[in-house]
Nucleic acid binder design. Structure first.
Lengths: 284, 284
DNA sequence: AATACTCGTTGCGATGGCCGCAACAACGAT
DNA sequence: ATCGTTGTTGCGGCCATCGCAACGAGTATT
């Protein structure tokens, strides 16, 4: 129902939009309704819902199917959304992410008055794509060249927080062997089970927090950003000296989470669209 | 600029598709190109790429923007894909499938330590929806949207392995006509009967394996993923250099099959629910 | 089994929208 | 100031689409 509802009157002229495009999108809109996306709909039913001629709907759907925007079940003759919509979005999410994230990071900066980062996972390292400071905004390679071991940072833990335990195990295994030798001072996560426990807590809480683990005197929080599939594709991170951010770490975490949800919604994450800031990280 | 993934010839007549729809989708296709998605494109450049009138492109983009399928940067006047596309994509079956499959692919990676893919059939090509690598440099370069000729890959053969022989014949016929000209070096399947035999073997074995057929030095296995109706909707694929995966190809195939069965069970496939013939439970 | 109903597709004529050319407005560079 | 961009907008002719209606196919009803 109703998230992409067409705002104006459907077939009233006045908008400069092309009529054919609008008709096609109305049809796709109906196919995208949650109650219909799973089952599919027939031509007459769509025509009835839209108040259009069924011949028109039939022809339009045939064209949409030919272009991959809709798919048809040959048994029931019902239509569903097609693969091409996915292909469009999938190729673009990362580029779109870096473009759209900036205003959200700025908003978070305005609320917390601390530096914020947009981070993704590359290999077993956390890569920072974008940083926004209270005064200046840096794009790109400032923090980028430095490969930060993922499990030590809140961003890294968030980025793997929707992984299954055994995938988490094999991923963290290599790192833990090296880390056990180095043994950082405040390192809280020393075994795989520690990581699994921490990740479970992150899932429940919605955001991750580290306290002087990565660097002495530094605290930080991170919240996951999900794309239209519901997969975690990035993390928004806030890092600051413990003396400044420490007392408000919980509040910072909740605000980071809220901003991350807004960004997720803009990326098309269905569960995050206009939801209350608690409950439901989509699903598991 | 010779984009291999771009759909059929732009202004070819003969398809019953509406001209306006095709034009709009061509424009969106250009906007979705990875090399352009980051920066965005102007009207003239799109018109030049497509060989269309810029007035037409300008008007079409205005309509697309009004409908939320494209967004415009008011400073540079460049267009990007719009939010509505992502809302649609989130409702696609592929999006749900990808979301559900990701943990299973990661688990398979944890066991085999090789890159795994989730593939679906699109026409006569195999489209990769998601790739997960052992170093977890997923989100890597160029996975989704890349399509390869189906009968040459293990994934493609798995995806058609529940088709009736005559359907298989007519499907492979078109491809074989093209492929006979190209004639890849290690191509084992040269006639329709070869394909039918291979598919029969796949059905009996449960998974497919290719040995340097698609690419020299590359071996791979694939297993089918079925939905609640028992139909094959996707394939899980593992590909790696022959020197690494070759000796354990059989084991990799059985493990891929086991994971694919688990995913099928989650999709509601009744036969895969309790009874897994080759069950490799617990750790690895 | 025959009927009546629903569903989806397809001809066909009239009409309305789109195509392409060209002029126009807004910048920026030389 | 002139030129070269880029993007937008009139305008006429042509063509694709709209809506009606008929048709084939499948299914429930009698």
């Amino acid at each position: 129902m109703a998230d992409p509802t067409s705002p104006g009157s459907p077939r009233r002229s006045g908008t400069p939009s092309s009529a054919g495009l609008r008709r096609d999108l109305e049809i796709l809109d109906v196919l995208a309704r949650p109650e219909h996306a799973a089952n599919g709909l027939g031509v007459s039913r769509i025509a009835e819902i839209l108040g259009r001629e069924k011949s028109q709907v039939s022809r339009a759907l045939k064209a949409l199917e030919a272009e991959g925007m809709a798919e048809r079940d040959l048994d029931s003759l019902e239509y569903r959304l097609g693969w091409r919509l996915y292909a469009f979005a999938a190729r673009t999410t990362e580029a779109r992410l870096t473009h759209l994230a900036a205003p959200y990071l700025r908003r978070l900066v305005a609320r917390l008055n601390e530096t914020t980062h947009l981070c993704v996972l590359r290999g077993s390292a956390v890569l920072t794509l974008l940083s926004v400071s209270p005064s200046h905004a840096f794009r790109g390679l400032g923090w980028e060249g430095v490969s930060v071991p993922a499990p030590m940072t809140s961003a890294g833990r968030v980025l793997v927080s929707d992984w299954a335990p055994d995938a988490l195990r094999s991923w963290a295994d290599a790192w833990l062997r090296e880390a056990s030798a180095a043994a950082a001072p405040h390192q809280h996560i020393r075994t795989v089970d520690d990581l699994v426990r921490e990740v479970t807590a992150i899932r429940r809480r919605g955001y991750a927090a580290v306290d002087e683990e990565f660097e002495v005197g530094l605290v930080g929080v991170s919240a996951p950003v999900r794309d239209f599939r519901g997969m975690i594709v990035a993390a928004i991170n806030v890092s600051a000296p413990k003396g400044r951010l420490g007392p408000h770490l919980g509040e910072a975490g909740r605000r980071t989470l809220a901003i991350a949800r807004e960004l997720s919604a803009e990326l098309g994450h269905p569960a995050a669209r206009g939801q209350t800031p608690d409950q439901a990280t989509s699903d598991g």
